[in-house]
Design a binder for these strands. Structure first.
Lengths: 202, 202
DNA sequence: TGTACATCAGTGAACGCGCGTTCACTGATGTAC
DNA sequence: TGTACATCAGTGAACGCGCGTTCACTGATGTAC
């Protein structure tokens, strides 16, 4: 009835996808409904046919961002033995490439916005962080490392902190050194530096 | 001429001090001029007798926050030998007490706001981070640890990341464990775990 | 197979509110005489 | 020592803008007959 059957769902999904990018780029408060709708080729009034409120959109978008992050880990780590998977994830995360482009990781982009957000937004964030921690913890446990959950949380926070601070350091040399030494520190901590399993094949 | 000689300077300083707290609590965008002035017992119009703009206040306030952080390090670490100083700073920073109260450290509170702020605000932040890094680097170097500047940056980012993430973790047990294992990881990294220098005497 | 109708995704003007900034003013105090 | 005056920190109303939300509407399309 009016438009094709899946049309609304498609538009909805497109808005969430767009919003998840704007959310990472600008944060929750600077994401403007009118601007988002315009970017989607629509007028701002139509927004409320899709979302109860801006808040509702933010929550959907945040879930999407965490999902993207989880997928990213799996894209990098699946099909590798656990120790190699961890090393690859750490190298990809704590990198100047990650520093210089829009982060997929909401922890880097949104952590300090959190206290000012609504309870439900924070709850969604909590859930997302828990998901990422347990994703990492699976590899860490599979690698035979003790205390996997706490180590996963500590690793994730050290990675996110390093990228966040590297962005705030204007001296490029120091910024690169910070990332390099964080990669080494984390890998040493997880006992991944020993290079037991041969070369860097594939 | 009107009021006492130092009156204006005192008011100015009081506004900056208040702002530095609000800045850490609410971030740059949610710091409202009228609200700040009201908190200082003044009306909002008078603001512009003290600051060229809100932006100018934010920069002064941010400098004050970084100064507070630096003073905090010295308060904890001065009068201790370098290794003990570092251990004490790490324990105080990466603690549930720090997680649960308003952070003195602007890296924890403001890092993800940064990309949305003005160039000069970011420059002020850069300067502040550089100052904290070199403060830590002094102790690290004095402790005879190699690569002190990069280690200082990496340590600071790991500490800030841990506190930020610990705030976003709703599971209290995991949150505490994250802090504990980060403390241990960082101290192990800096070779402070060996407990060479005896007990914990004052 | 063709036509009238109902649906509803999207339109665009309008509203209200928060907030940074401006500005003409006031009145307490130090200073000149 | 007392008085008129100039200064200027602070006042409070007003303005303009961004932005979330509302709402009466439109017009393309599927459906009933």
């Amino acid at each position: 009835v009016g438009y094709s059957q899946t049309h609304k769902e498609e538009t909805h999904a497109r808005l969430v996808r767009l919003a998840s990018e704007v959310l990472r780029r600008k944060g929750p408060e600077k994401l403007a409904v009118a601007e988002l709708m315009h970017a989607a080729g629509l007028t701002h009034g139509g927004f409320y046919a899709h979302f109860k409120s801006k808040e509702a959109l933010l929550e959907e978008a945040l879930r999407a961002v965490f999902e993207d992050a989880r997928r990213q880990y799996h894209r990098i780590g699946d099909s590798l033995p656990p120790r190699r998977a961890l090393a690859r994830i750490i190298d990809a995360y704590v990198s100047s490439a990650h520093r210089d482009r829009l982060s997929v990781c909401p922890i880097v982009t949104l952590n300090s916005d959190l206290p000012r957000q609504s309870k439900t937004f924070r709850a969604t964030f909590n859930t997302g962080v828990a998901m990422l921690v347990s994703t990492l913890a699976n590899w860490i446990e599979a690698a035979g490392i003790a205390d996997s959950e706490a180590q996963a949380a500590s690793t994730l926070s050290a990675m996110a902190g390093a990228v966040a601070v590297s962005r705030a350091v204007s001296d490029n040399r120091l910024s690169d050194e910070l990332l390099r030494s964080t990669r080494e520190n984390i890998k040493a901590q997880l006992g991944l530096s020993a290079r037991r399993s041969g070369g860097t094949a594939q």
